[in-house]
Design a protein around this nucleic acid. Structure first.
Lengths: 207, 207
DNA sequence: GTCTATAGCGAGATAGAC
DNA sequence: GTCTATCTCGCTATAGAC
């Protein structure tokens, strides 16, 4: 593997840190492993970043944004039908996670360890899910009242959508082993879900 | 808090270890914290269990069983309809996780760190998901062929069922914060899902 | 900027008194 | 069986040469 464009060391480090933190989590990650992954020396990590925690925060922030941005944007677009919105959300979410299969597990487990992270970085990055959730709930209630879909609570529907999109990636190693899926098989399955999940949801709620 | 029935120390330790390992994972768990949780001294942990790893293995085995047993049993019962089976699976899974909300995240993250755990403990405990999965796929294929349900792949349906049941618990801290749910609210929501999810799935696949 | 060497510390494990 | 004291080691972080 020849590096045709030699990246600046700082970026090499960030890339390496991202990989290692994402697959190991903060506690199990080792500076040694990050250095190795970046092809440099342990000491050099500290030249660019004060310490492990600082490094982690930087990585967490960017991954947090990656995970939480996107989704909400779609919902805000106003003049498209509910079913179309759901299709786009599902497609967007599964596409994102196919590109970053460990992202969801990383974010969720780190937040589980210190729930304040969600509030802290939510504020810092101006991501406020509640606004989005309320809008979503309102739209669902309206559709139900108008008799356009079966009765269902917005919260529950939203959890269902997230579950169907996100869980397969969170549990990827479990699913792969249980169902004997190699990397390719897994991605085929995920790709198929872009449509499968949309249809599943729409069938579940349509009248 | 008065301990009316004083448990033997060994059990106190196992209970404490279960709690700490489950919420922190192996890497972030501290022997000190386990000792404190058990109300004893650090050194005493080593009197009952050789070391941290041994202790962890013991805990992991019992939690692994807890997570993977159950589910499969239900499916094997033969003379009930598919919809009834789904209802029972959903109810069983959500009930289990309501009792042990951190269980799924624990098992999944530890397996993600070392996927061999799934194979190793699966063998050790005689849990073989593949048999179950194949039977499930066969039944779905039959129902589809007979025109009793919409066309859907068994694998995808199974993943959907697991996702809808398990994800809310895996992502519990995220969901609680995003949706402003305290413990009670969360449990009400989960309780409601026992029916909500069954209906959702059945509507999604019925003709 | 990058390395080698090493200081410093946190945490797991052991020795030994009671 | 349970504790206090201590050893040991792995890992983070720093000092200093190049």
């Amino acid at each position: 593997m020849i590096e045709s464009k030699e990246k600046p060391t700082e970026e090499l480090i960030l890339d390496a840190a991202m990989k290692v933190f994402t697959r190991k989590g903060f506690a199990a990650a080792r500076m040694e492993e990050i250095a190795k992954e970046a092809g440099i020396n342990r000491a050099l990590l500290h030249y660019y970043h004060r310490d492990k925690q600082t490094m982690f925060n930087r990585i967490f922030e960017s991954r947090f944004k990656e995970f939480f941005k996107g989704l909400f944007v779609i919902f805000e677009s106003d003049n498209i039908s509910l079913f179309e919105k759901i299709k786009r959300m599902v497609d967007h979410e599964i596409s994102t996670l196919m590109k970053h299969p460990d992202l969801a597990r990383f974010i969720i487990t780190e937040i589980a360890q210190s729930p304040d992270l969600l509030i802290e970085y939510g504020k810092k990055l101006g991501i406020n899910p509640r606004v989005f959730i309320e809008a979503f709930e309102k739209q669902i209630a309206k559709e139900v009242d108008a008799g356009l879909i079966r009765p269902i609570e917005g919260k529950q529907l939203l959890i269902n959508i997230m579950s169907l999109c996100i869980y397969p990636f969170v549990a990827k190693p479990v699913i792969q082993t249980m169902m004997s899926l190699n990397e390719n098989n897994f991605y085929d399955m995920a790709e198929q879900r872009k449509i499968e999940v949309s249809e599943f949801i729409i069938n579940a709620i349509k009248k």
